[in-house]
């Protein structure tokens, strides 16, 4: 599918709703996990170049904590949950009650990383199961993988399938933030990147041709 010709504004609105529902449930799960109020921004759905995609995540060299999984099943794609280091540190400290956890120098504490991994499992699982309920599609996510690295290196991995067909990606970007923190940077960001062949299945499942 060539994105610029066949995807209309209406399609983009439908994808926005996908982000809304998925990340909305994930925000609730995160809120329960941390015992804090978590809000979300209105999802952004954009058709972007690969370089623009990196800019949306803070630039190629931006060092982040990421949870990445592949979605398989009736539709396929890549999903990332990306956290700035200070945010991830603060979440890990809350979950493990270990105030000494830090991303300053590797190797990082195993328990801390394991807590982060678990949080990624819960949030991405919540996002995808609500997406599956909403679309009635069977989705089989891989076990999420955790990485602390440059965002360009991480996201380009999720662009491999897409890059065979296109030089652009449709990204559903949803940001979460803590109560009263909207101006102070994002708590976490979901990127959902459906593979090109999946769009028609996704739209069909939602009654859009």
């Amino acid at each position: 599918m060539s994105f610029d010709q066949e995807i209309t504004l209406y399609h983009l609105d439908v994808l926005k709703e996908v982000g809304n529902i998925g990340a909305g449930h994930a925000a609730t799960a995160l809120s329960t996990l941390l015992g804090k109020t978590i809000d979300m921004k209105v999802p952004l759905v954009k058709i972007v170049s690969f370089d623009d995609m990196m800019e949306m995540a803070g630039g190629s060299e931006n060092i982040v904590v990421s949870i990445f999984l592949r979605i398989e099943g009736e539709i396929s794609g890549s999903m990332f949950f990306i956290l700035p280091l200070p945010q991830a540190e603060s979440f890990i400290r809350t979950m493990t009650q270990d105030e000494s956890f830090s991303f300053d120098t590797p190797p990082y504490s195993e328990i801390g990383l394991s807590a982060m991994q678990e949080m990624g499992n819960i949030l991405s699982g919540t996002y995808l199961s609500s997406l599956s309920d909403f679309t009635q599609l069977n989705l089989y996510p891989t076990v999420p993988a955790l990485s602390v690295d440059m965002v360009g290196a991480i996201i380009s991995y999720g662009l491999v399938e897409l890059s065979q067909v296109s030089d652009q990606a449709i990204v559903i970007d949803t940001a979460l933030f803590g109560e009263g923190h909207e101006g102070e940077g994002v708590t976490g960001q979901f990127f959902l990147l459906p593979d090109p062949d999946s769009f028609h299945v996704l739209f069909k499942s939602l009654g859009v041709e």
Binding site: G59, S60, E61, D149, M150, V151, G152, A153, I154, S156
Partner: peptide, 8 residues
């Protein structure tokens, strides 16, 4: 220079 090479 180029930044953020992963599998690339």
């Amino acid at each position: 220079r180029t930044a953020g090479l992963g599998s690339c």
